[in-house]
Design a binder for these strands. Structure first.
Lengths: 225, 225
DNA sequence: AAATAAAAGTGTACTTGCAACACTTTTTAC
DNA sequence: GTAAAAAGTGTTGCAAGTACACTTTTATTT
């Protein structure tokens, strides 16, 4: 299909990416959302989005959009879905591909986020968003939840070293239901790729809690047979 | 974001859809593939594809592409992934969204398929395809397999009435491994939305096998509580 | 120095779903 | 009537998951 004529009879469209950026804080999942502080549609909320540029891979466009907002460029990101309703963007026709990103909420660039008028909003308090962005959030949440039950992607929401209490709270937030402490710890103990660092965190308890880390080599080793 | 100037600084791209059309015959999954019978790239194989047109929903574009080839317009279809590598189409830059479709292989329009120089190819014999179409097939297969373990989507590959032996052969083809007959039938017996029609199929055995059908109302009722 | 408070950490019994496994029934064709 | 070919049918064992409550440790307070 290398004939120019073959392509030229077909229309072209803007290609956007919209990013559902998840964080985890105080036992709840949050999203990083932007509030427009200029007209039109001043005050309305949206996902972090942008357009795919010439010569730019679509995955790279999504990474760029997140990096421009957070300063972080090595995040865990996955494509969720492409939305192509004719009237989804009332301005012009735009096809948009949604990606989700997982952020350690301690690490992002606060200046950049402030400059973009972006805020972390806890999941139950997500406002009405522009266009079909609420649907994108629902789809991303469902997909992220599924992935979290299959692989330890959730760990990307925690700092490098974490306690089992934090990890349990994270999974409770992701799955939206309480988990039995003893059963949870039994399951984690079977995962040799979640290993004790030897360190102890005393910020959250008097007794102190053992710190753990994710060992990527061991994890990859387990599954790349 | 309703200002024209906001959009116009960004490039536009062709938006394609490519369809992985699954069928099931003689105990094996097949794909409906096209072989180019004209230059350039004469003889090369590809998925059924097409471009999204103005005023056309992207899902509708995928349905149109499959309908133009098979004559079938009410198939089970799901979006798989969007491929946006810069050089994925050596002609012009094209972003392509892959969909899979499930076809009752007895039902398609043979004239249309012949006119398009398309052929059913069994999965183990899939040839090298143009561009990134082999990767699309792998991704679609993985996604379809996952969905088949979660919901009875596979039934869309069978005729309205089917025997349990056919259904088991289908799931063996989808999952790529043999299934124990008694365990399989026990599991099916628990699904009240797979019900006996009362009919008997004698084409495949002397004894005759009970015919079953999928009851969509019962299925929806079970899960829409 | 003793009491208190607050989170970390630990084991067992029960239930349930999945996996392994082989023979009988029915009917047509020879 | 016998042979062939597919349909149909139950039980047992195992493993994974679930339910469930008390002890340990240490900083803070009195």
């Amino acid at each position: 299909m290398a004939e120019q004529a073959f392509y030229s009879v077909h229309p072209k469209f803007h290609a956007a990416v919209d990013c559902i950026i998840f964080g985890f804080e105080e036992g709840e999942l949050s999203l990083l959302l932007l509030q427009r502080n200029f007209e039109p549609a001043k005050g309305e909320w949206s996902l972090a989005g942008g357009f795919v540029e010439d010569g730019e891979n679509i995955d790279d466009a999504a990474r760029r959009v997140v990096a421009e907002l957070t300063g972080l460029d090595d995040l865990y990101m996955r494509q969720v879905h492409t939305y192509g309703e004719v009237e989804r963007d009332p301005g012009e026709r735009v096809l948009s591909t949604a990606y989700y990103a997982l952020v350690d909420i301690k690490k992002y660039d606060r200046e950049l986020v402030r400059a973009h008028n972006a805020f972390w909003i806890k999941l139950p308090a997500i406002p009405r968003l522009i266009f079909d962005h609420n649907r994108m959030v629902q789809d991303a949440l469902r997909f992220m939840r599924y992935q979290a039950t299959v692989k330890p992607v959730g760990i990307n929401l925690l700092p490098e070293e974490f306690t089992l209490t934090q990890l349990q709270a994270l999974y409770e937030a992701i799955l939206g239901e309480p988990i039995d402490k003893r059963n949870f710890r039994k399951r984690i103990a079977q995962m040799d790729y979640i290993e004790k660092t030897g360190g102890i965190d005393k910020t959250l308890s008097r007794k102190g809690a053992a710190l753990y880390r994710f060992n990527r080599e061991k994890y990859d080793g387990n599954f790349k047979i």
